[in-house]
C-alpha cells in the first residue's frame, strides 16, 4: 500500500467518546478504562510487543553490529551469508545485516517524524476547519480535495525529483506537507460533531475564548481519533518511504534503507538466487507495519468499543 488511499477503510472516523463514559460501572477512570480495554486485546498487545522488538532491534544496533552499514568493500560484493556477514553483502560489498538494522532506524524515524508533522498540521487545520466552519472551512476542504485526487506517489516523486539532494529531513518535511489532508478531513468531521455537544455550548456560554475551547475541550475529546489516525499514518509512511527508496527516489545511498535493500531484488539473480539479501528487509517492513496496524486497531477499539467490527 504505497499510495495510502485517501480515506481507506483503515481511516477510522470514530465517534469521540462521551466526556463522561456511560459504562462506568466500577470506579475506573476513562483513561484506565481505555488502557484496560487495550490490553484485553490480544492482537494489540502482540502488536506492541512486536513493535518494541523492532525498535530495540534497530536502536541497539551499535551493541551487536560490528559492521558500518555505509562501509563499502568492493572486493567482497554479493557475498553469501557467513559468520562475518550474517546476511551476506550487497552490490557494493556493504554488510546486509548492518544495513537491515540501521535501515530500521531510518524507517522508524521517518515514520515517527512524519506522523508528528502530519498530526500537528492535521490537528491545527482540522480544528480550524471543523470549529469555525464557513468560508475558511470550505477553503481548507477544497485544498484537501486537491491533494486527495492526485496520484499520491506521483506527487511525491515530482517534488523529490525537483528538490534533488534529498536527505531524511527534506523527505520527512516533503511527505508531511503532502500527506496532511487525510487526517485533516477526519478530524474536521470529528470536530463538527463535537461542536454540537452540550459541554461546548456551556463552555461558550461561560465566555471561554475560541482558542480555549479548542485547546481545553475539543482536542482532549478528539484524542482518540487523533492517536488512532496517527498510528495509521505512521505505518503508511514507513511503507511509503520504503517504496520511494525502492524506486530510487528515497533517501540516497549510502544511508541504509529497507526499500533500497529491496531494490536489489530487481536483479533476477538476486531475486531467485539470493533471497537472504532482500527477504529480511521485506519481512521487517511487513512486521513493523503490521504491528503498528494492530496497535492502531487496538487503540481504536479501546477508545471506542462501538466501532469494533465483528
Amino acid at each position: 500500500m504505497s499510495g495510502p488511499s485517501p480515506g481507506s477503510t483503515k481511516q477510522v472516523n470514530t465517534e469521540p467518546p462521551m466526556p463522561e463514559a456511560k459504562e462506568q460501572k466500577k470506579s475506573y477512570s476513562p483513561t484506565k478504562l481505555i488502557v484496560k480495554r487495550f490490553f484485553a486485546n490480544k492482537l494489540a498487545v502482540a502488536g506492541v510487543f512486536m513493535f518494541l522488538l523492532v525498535v530495540i532491534f534497530s536502536f541497539s544496533a551499535p551493541l551487536f553490529v560490528e559492521h558500518d552499514p555505509a562501509q563499502t568493500n568492493p572486493l567482497n560484493t554479493y557475498a553469501e551469508p557467513s559468520a562475518d556477514h550474517w546476511l551476506g553483502t550487497n552490490s557494493s560489498g556493504q554488510d546486509n545485516f548492518a544495513r537491515l538494522v540501521y535501515g530500521g532506524q531510518i524507517s522508524l524515524q521517518v515514520g515517527v517524524f512524519i506522523m508528528l508533522i502530519v498530526s500537528v498540521i492535521g490537528v491545527v487545520l482540522g480544528s480550524i476547519s471543523g470549529y469555525f466552519g464557513g468560508w475558511i472551512d470550505s477553503i481548507i476542504m477544497r485544498v484537501t480535495d486537491l491533494f486527495l485526487i492526485f496520484p499520491f506517489l506521483l506527487l511525491v516523486l515530482t517534488v523529490v525529483t525537483i528538490l534533488q539532494n534529498v536527505n531524511v529531513a527534506i523527505l520527512v518535511i516533503t511527505l508531511g506537507l503532502i500527506v496532511w489532508p487525510n487526517i485533516t478531513r477526519i478530524l474536521r468531521g470529528t470536530y463538527l460533531t463535537l461542536r454540537e455537544r452540550e459541554f461546548i455550548y456551556s463552555a461558550r456560554a461561560a465566555g471561554a475564548t475560541d482558542l480555549r475551547i479548542i485547546m481545553k475541550h475539543m482536542i482532549p475529546n478528539a484524542i482518540g481519533p487523533i492517536i488512532v489516525n496517527a498510528t495509521i499514518i505512521m505505518a503508511q509512511m514507513i511503507i511509503l518511504e520504503s517504496a520511494l527508496s525502492f524506486i530510487g527516489f528515497g533517501i540516497p545511498a549510502p544511508t541504509p534503507s529497507w526499500g533500497a535493500m529491496l531494490n536489489e531484488a530487481r536483479s533476477l539473480n538476486i531475486l531467485t538466487g539470493m533471497p537472504w539479501a532482500w527477504m529480511p528487509p521485506g519481512i521487517m517492513i511487513v512486521i513493523t507495519v503490521l504491528s503498528i496496524n494492530f496497535i492502531g486497531d487496538g487503540l481504536r477499539d479501546a477508545f471506542d468499543p462501538k466501532s469494533s467490527r465483528k
Binding site: M1, S2, S8, T9, K10, A235, I239, S242, A243, F246, I247, L262, A265, L268, L271, T272, P275, W278, G282, I285, V286, V289, L290, N293
Partner: peptide, 24 residues
Amino acid sequence: QGMQALPDFFIIIVVQMVVLWLFR
C-alpha cells in the same frame, strides 16, 4: 484486511519470485 497493510511492491516481488520458481 491484512494485505492492505503490506507494501505492494514487496508482494509483487514475492509473486514474481513464486512465478519464476514455478517456471523452473
